[in-house]
Each structure stands twice: as structure tokens, then as C-alpha cells.
Design a protein around this nucleic acid. Structure first.
Lengths: 134, 134
DNA sequence: GGTGAGTTAAGGAAAAGTGTTTAAATTTAA
DNA sequence: TTAAATTTAAACACTTTTCCTTAACTCACC
């Protein structure tokens, strides 16, 4: 009923790929053509993208754009910016300074290496003071 | 191409619902029956569940089972257990003690109320030292 | 040039998903 | 207990997805 997007065939191919097998090798194992393995793998990755995008929609559903953290910003200055913007909107941020920094860093490690923001990050907030990023 | 799972109709209904409208009210706005609004909304929620489950599969794909945190365990004792098991597997956990506890608590608030583990939690780890729960 | 790995295109058949209606059943709230 | 709100079931047309084949194609490498 509440089954995932990936078909058994797609999961099968992804598992073998994770093990490092080539499409040709997988084709022999599951008795089909390598072209078909390629198609199935591609469909699987497509489905994963769709799953991601689906959940992202949820955030925009109940969250409003709060501010943008500019590339180059010191991560430790982010909380004050966020608090100020949230106050303008009359919303109380759910996180204290420490956990806010943790939240930022954990949510997207690639964009918060060390103490610097490496690329622009959009901040969204909902009525509960929860933060989301895009 | 890489569109999300939710159809325009489904997003429409979810937005109106978020605003607090009843199915009857929405039915009038989008010119259909209230039963249909119900079906569409249900399909939307179903799709969201499927998106979640799809992404969960990814975690189990490249993560190996590390250990089980038994119900009743003191949350503060979890890090040592996890570090020990990871060392056995030759993997370095990505989190220090504090952030590991934060990660545990944040990932599943229902199962980590106060300082106690309320039900068994399976811990998975991948080669990067990332942790996942199931 | 030849080889191995991967991708793309065209086409087809079976399966699954979507929006819809109608009608009945159930839950929730005044 | 009524009334409103929500859910469920069955059925239908329609579209999309999936898996499959065959054949041609790119790309990197020796």
C-alpha cells in the first residue's frame, strides 16, 4: 500500500550497482540486455529525484521565505540575522543559538564547511519557528 | 522531466487544506465533488508517504547495521556504544559526542524523550561515518 | 582500429496511476 | 440525536510508467 516509488527491479539494479558491478554483469545476472539495465537504473535515479522534489514541496507549503545567507558569511553571524528577520515577521525561531548553528551545519554540510557559508542559502520559516533551507 | 510526485490537482488541494478549508469548500472552488476532493487529498498524502519511503531505502542501500540501542538505555551512554561498534567495523563516526546525541534526539524525537530510549532503535552506519536509524 | 562501459532512440505490451462520478458508510461536532 | 465533514467502494476513461528488445551511438583507453 504505502510502498516506495522504486520497483523491485529498480532496487535490484541499484543494489548490484552499489556493489560495483557493471551494467553488462548485472544484465547477465538478471537475464536481460545491458540497455535494459541502463534504462532501469536511469528510471530508478529519476524516481529518487522525484521523491526528493516531492518532499521539498512540503516545506514551501507551510514555510515562508525568511532571508538569504550570502556566500562568504561567517556561520556564527547567521543566528543574529535569522533572529532579526524572524522578529520582523513576528515569528519566534524554534532554536537557540547553538542548536541553530547545528541545524544549519547538519542540514547541508556541503554548503557550511568550517565557519564559512560557501554558497547562497535560502532560509524558510514556518509558523512554528521551524527552519528549512533551499 | 524531474517533476515531483504530486499532481497539480493534489498540490492545489493540499494548499487549500493548509489554509483550513473544508473538502466541501474546496470542491466548490475547483468545481468537483467533495468525494473527489477527499480522494485527491488522500492520494496526495499517499504520494508523500511513498516519497519518504523511497528515500529511506537509500539509507539502507549504502549503510550497514551497526548496533541496536535497547529500550531503557540512558541516552548519554549511547555514544560510547556506537563508537565501540564502529571501531570494530573500522569506521570512524562522523559525529563527536555532543553532536551525536543531538543527531539521535533530532532524528526521532518520539523515541528519545528526556534521557531515555523509549523503544529499540536500530543504528546503521555507512563508510563515511554517517548514521541512520530504523 | 578495437574493446568495454555506458547511453539513446523507437516501438510494443502489460501494469499502474489519475481524475471523475455515484452511492453508501463512518466520524465528528453542535 | 441531527447535521456536517470525511471516508470508502466500485466503476470507467484516460494517461503514464515499466520492462523489454533491437540497433545505433558516444566516450575513454590501449
Amino acid at each position: 500500500m504505502k510502498q516506495g516509488l522504486l520497483t523491485d527491479r529498480q532496487k535490484e539494479v541499484l543494489r548490484y550497482r552499489k556493489k560495483g558491478l557493471t551494467q553488462q554483469q548485472i544484465a547477465e545476472i538478471i537475464h536481460t540486455s545491458k540497455a535494459n539495465v541502463c534504462t532501469i537504473e536511469k528510471a530508478a535515479l529519476e524516481n529518487i529525484s522525484r521523491a526528493r522534489e516531492t518532499l521539498e514541496f512540503l516545506y514551501t507549503l507551510d514555510a515562508a521565505h525568511l532571508c538569504t545567507l550570502q556566500s562568504g558569511l561567517d556561520l556564527l553571524k547567521a543566528p543574529d540575522i535569522i533572529y532579526a528577520e524572524a522578529e520582523k515577521m513576528g515569528v519566534k525561531v524554534k532554536y537557540d543559538t547553538i542548536s541553530l548553528i547545528n541545524r544549519l551545519r547538519d542540514a547541508n554540510p556541503d554548503r557550511f564547511r568550517s565557519r564559512q557559508v560557501r554558497e547562497d542559502v535560502e532560509i524558510y520559516i514556518n509558523n512554528d519557528g521551524d527552519l528549512y533551507f533551499g
